[in-house]
Each structure stands twice: as C-alpha cells, then as structure tokens.
Amino acid sequence: MRARIAVLALLGVLVLMPYLWMVAASVKPVSEIFRASLSIWPEQFAAAENYGKVLARVPVLHYLWNGVVVCGGILLFQLLFAVPAGYALAKLRFPGRGIAFGAVMLGLLVPPHVPALPLYVAASGMGLLDSYTALIAPFTISAFAIFLFRQFFSALPDDLLHAARLDGMGEWSIVWRVVLPNAWPAATAFAIFSVVSHWNDLFWPLIVVQGHEHATPALGVLYFRSEEAGDDFGAMMAAAVLMTLPLVLAFLLAQRRFVEGIATTGLKG
C-alpha cells in the first residue's frame, strides 16, 4: 500500500508540474527565468513587479467580471429554458411532446461549433458583435440541459405531483414549488458543468469579441500574450495565474461537488 502512495505521489507531481513552474516563474525576475535554472524556488522575488505589470497593463478584474457575467448569463437562461421544458417532457402529456423530445435528442448530437458560422453572420448583421448578447445568446439553449432535467424529473414519483394537484396547485406552481426545490442536485451538477465549459471556452469568444471591453478571461490571457508580454514570461505566468485562480479556488473549496457534478453530467451526456 505504501507503493500505491509513492506511485500516486510521483504521478501527482508530474501532473502538477505546469502549475509549479507557472507559479514559480510568476514570481521570478526575467533575468532568472532566462538563465533556465532547474531550481523552482526563486533566488530573487519579483512577484510585485510581474503581477504589478499585469494589473497595470490589462484590466484583469474586468476580464474576470466579464467571465462572471457571461457564465452567469448563460447558466441563468439555460436553467430558465431547460427546467420547465425538462419537467413538461418528463411529466406532462401535450401534443408535440414526441417531436419536442426528438428535437432534444437531435440537439444532443450537434457540437456547438456547427451553428457557429450562421450565428456569426446573424450577429454581425444585427450589429451585435462584440457584445454580451453575442457571447451569451448562442448557449442559452442547451439540449443537454433539457435532457438532463428530463431524466432527473422522470425519476420524481408521479404520486408527488398527483398529491400536489390534489392540494390544488396548478402546473406552474408545481414547477416552482415542488419540482424546482427537488431539482437542486441536478441543477448544481449542471451548473458546474456549464460554468467550467464556458469559462474555459475560447472558440466562440475569439470569433465574436474584438476588444478588451467584452473579453473573457481566456481571451484576456491571449491578448496579454500577444500584445504585452512578448518574451516576458514572468508577467505572462502572472497573468495565467490570475486568470486560472478563480475557478481553481472554487474547485478546491467544493471539490466533491465539482467531481460529482462533472461525473454525473459526463456520464449522462
């Protein structure tokens, strides 16, 4: 059993290597980085210089804020669309339900890159490029979210809903007062899945965003690298640390939930 820990520790260090060097370089002065020494621990600390440079040259906090707005906006609309639809598909009989469910299954098959071109043309035609709307709108409808909630609500006992109807609730109040409070496990899992994928997304922001104003953290790193850093790896790593930190911190605080969220959404997707 000691061998297990030893092997895991070795592999763990290997996986953590990029983080260790990233953090180390972010507090080293440029001269030291260029000496390419193998020592992780800096001889001289240049943290203030590197991080100061990043904070002075690019609006880091603004990027992070954009990330929050975009991920939050996407998630809000995804839930708003998917929770009632998922409930209706799981528990209500209405004309067109079969078609609607077929559409959801079809939607599951289409990667988000496929509708990107026409959406770009449309956004450009409506003058919406480089706006929060352009960043958020394409992802507000998630076939996966509808599917996930449908599966989850299908497992709710019918008797619970019958009891609510006997108590005089209409379908809408059932959604808000009975179904939603029971949807939390699925909603948290989906929220983690959604935020992780959109926080990290580069493809779509790269297409629709042009300046700093609406840049997400991923774009922020890219901009800083091409415009400011050049070969200044210390500052570059400082920027990378700053942009990586929020989600990593959230993960470390709620590790279990993250892992479970990704595992359940992963296995159902």
Partner: peptide
C-alpha cells in the same frame, strides 16, 4: 489525489497553454 489529477479539467485552458 482525485483533486490533483482533476485540477487540469477546471483550469483555464488558454492560461495553462501559456504555462
């Protein structure tokens, strides 16, 4: 160790690419 190996999944890809 689960957290260690999972860390790259939640790390900003672009930033880690820079690293």
């Amino acid at each position: 160790f689960r957290a260690v190996f999972f860390l790259p999944v939640v790390s900003l890809t672009v930033a880690m690419a820079a690293a």
